[in-house]
């Protein structure tokens, strides 16, 4: 009985240390790949290729999701605001909600699912098929060739995607509000402010490449790492979102 209890306690400790170790390794990876090479460490062409595969290929899901989220916000907001006779504020509500909260967060979540998991699987596969080892043995640093351009591609494309998401979302809102519900054009497009959150974007890409690089090089390991990427990124995005919102709005 006591022995079993001790086992449990030890297991908790082991998990704790391995989590902290993983955070340490991840931080080193981030430090090494960002300090050692700028966006063009593997050549400008390669960076463009990565931006295409993480950014451009995520466009459709981001744009479509943004449009629908915007339309839903428009409908919901209209039904609430009309009770108070302030449906003229609908445009401000939709745009602020999207720019401050939903845009970056939903983009980050979608990005984690679409591009993050793909990044993890790709790097994990390169590790499992010894491509990363082969690169090392050729005297080529896989950090610079593989990790750095993907990190930068994520860092560059995510804010743009988030902005696109919000823009399309606002159009979606306008489509519902102005064209379907008949709110005044000028009122909807009134006063809109912009503030983009960058941090979540960095975190998602970082977690994705780290999970890939640190994965167990087997098919099972890659599957697990891919799931981990989506789960951990999503949680990190939501957690970080709260912290950032609290700081930004100055409430806490």
């Amino acid at each position: 009985m006591l022995a079993k209890l001790m086992d449990k306690i030890q297991a908790v400790g082991r998990t704790g240390t391995s989590v902290i170790e993983a955070i340490g390794r991840g931080t080193l990876l981030l430090k090494n790949s960002l300090l050692w090479g700028g966006p063009g460490s593997a050549g400008f062409h390669d960076l463009l290729k990565q931006i295409y595969s993480v950014g451009v290929r995520s466009l459709i899901i981001i744009v479509v999701a943004g449009f629908f989220v915007g339309m839903v916000l428009g409908l919901q907001g209209y039904n609430i605001l009309i009770d108070f006779g302030s449906e003229a504020a609908l445009g401000t509500m939709v745009s602020l909600t999207l720019l401050r909260e939903l845009g970056p967060v939903v983009t980050a979540l979608l990005f984690a699912g679409r591009a993050g998991s793909a990044l993890t699987a790709e790097i994990g596969l390169m590790k499992a098929t010894e491509q990363l080892s082969a690169m090392e043995m050729m005297g080529v640093d896989p950090f610079k060739r593989v990790i750095t351009p993907r990190l930068w591609a994520g860092i560059i494309s995510m804010p743009i995607l988030a902005l696109l998401f919000s823009t399309v979302g606002i159009w979606g809102g306008a489509f519902v509000a102005v064209d379907m519900l008949g709110i005044d054009d000028g009122a909807y497009w009134g006063n809109m402010q912009a503030s983009v959150e960058f941090y979540e974007d960095v975190v998602v890409t970082w977690i994705a490449v780290y999970q890939g690089y640190d994965s167990v090089p087997t098919s099972e390991g890659i599957g697990k790492a891919t799931t981990q990427t989506v789960v951990i990124s999503s949680l990190a995005v939501l957690g970080l979102d709260f912290v950032l919102t609290a700081v930004m709005l100055g409430g806490v």
Partner: peptide, 9 residues
């Protein structure tokens, strides 16, 4: 030379 060849796919 790696067992699988380890060519860049």
């Amino acid at each position: 030379l790696f067992q699988t060849g380890a060519l860049f796919t």
